[in-house]
Design a protein around this nucleic acid. Structure first.
Lengths: 219, 219
DNA sequence: AAAAATTTTTAAGCTTACTTAAAAATAGTT
DNA sequence: AACTATTTTTAAGTAAGCTTAAAAATTTTT
């Protein structure tokens, strides 16, 4: 299976996981930076390969086979992120970009070796869960976006759901890192801003950020 | 530049380094597993990109630009081999296969990070020299094939110049490994066999093997 | 040096993964 | 409900990197 196909099923998988699950060709096209026409073509083709269900004008739905393929690519991506993060001093954004390419050129054998070397980690450096070799995500995700947190409580950062360089640069500068603690100083419901205390610094985040930073409540 | 192009210049580079330097399209085609026609087409195309000099029916010759590209790919290949060898328990053959794919999906930045992490090694696990970031091979290779050694002398294995699984399996079983010592017990000039003593075992090698195992004399 | 064998080149054609442009269907707005 | 805007689909076309088959040139053999 080609890189284009792997990326296609991966895009459907990711878009399907989101709030407003939109997996119509146009959204997948946007995700991949290709034309809508190309996405429709590919969707039809992958339907014949039993990777997804295609019905005109409807959302694209991965079959079990398609989901398995997507999870296998996601597994390799996240294992590479974890390995590069451990070995090298590189920004999360750079690590993501390298993993985006390496994920398609990695045998199952190598993926298993990386996993073993890292002690079979359950999460990558963004806090995203790493599927196991069978394509299952065994961890239960109880985390919530920062936008849904309560004033005065303290949380642990569990996921940074983004690929964006500026976002990661901002995170790196402000200690917004997987595992770190944040205290919610104030929730401004009107303009959907959130004020947090982290590393003894007070910072103010807008919804763009509070919707992609996930946390778990500390007990 | 595409994977096909990178592999093409790499194949010319490798074939150009051999004894009977044959870089005509047919040999490159054989190396890459494509048709002669495809190799001729590609050669013409790469000439327009200033990667090689093409003259009908003549050997293909890399330009400086082409050589630089080839060495950059070779560098990434060998750095991956060195890294995988260090981190994981995998056969040299498997390591080679993974590196063959990863080499094309590796930024210069990542290559430099790998090199740095490994302490800027000069050789990969086969003993092949690793070009530096400028595409230069600074080491001087004084090694000779086992077939040219003298009876009674002891040598250090410096290179295993092969990609073949069976060869590596044989090497692994018999302690034929980069850095190990071999004593030449006997050279049979008639049938070009060589008897060596390694790890207290006497083994007999034919020319297929003695021509690709390189060694340095121990003083 | 001529004949035979091999290699290289040319030509035509294929598949993959795209593109743009226009037609058809759906979704949003008044 | 009708009109408008957007999205999806269809259709035609392109570039990369191959293929096979046949013609042209080179190399090897006798």
């Amino acid at each position: 299976m080609s890189v284009a196909i792997e990326n296609f099923v991966k895009a459907i998988y990711k878009n399907g996981k989101r709030d407003h699950n939109d997996t119509k060709p146009g959204n997948i096209a946007k995700e991949l930076g290709i034309s809508n026409a190309a996405a429709t073509d590919m969707a039809k083709k992958l339907a014949t390969k039993n990777l997804l269900h295609y019905e005109k004008y409807q959302e694209l739905k991965l079959t079990n086979k398609g989901t398995k393929m997507a999870l296998n690519v996601v597994r390799k991506h996240r294992l590479w992120e974890a390995l590069l993060f451990k070995l090298f001093d590189m920004s999360l954004h750079d690590i993501h970009r390298e993993a985006e390419l390496l994920e398609h050129q990695t045998s199952d054998l190598l993926a298993n070796k990386i996993s073993e070397y890292l002690g079979n980690p359950k999460f990558d450096p963004h806090g995203d869960p790493i599927p196991n070799a069978s394509g299952e995500i065994t961890t239960i995700d109880t985390s919530i976006p920062l936008s849904n947190t309560e004033e005065g409580k303290t949380y642990t950062i569990s996921r940074l759901m983004s690929d964006d360089k500026e976002f990661f640069d901002f995170c790196a500068q402000n200690g917004l890192k997987y595992g770190n603690s944040v205290l919610i100083s104030k929730q401004f419901s009107k303009n959907k801003m959130t004020q947090i205390l982290i590393n003894n610094n007070t910072i103010l985040l807008n919804e763009d950020f509070t919707s992609i930073i996930y946390v778990n409540e500390q007990n």
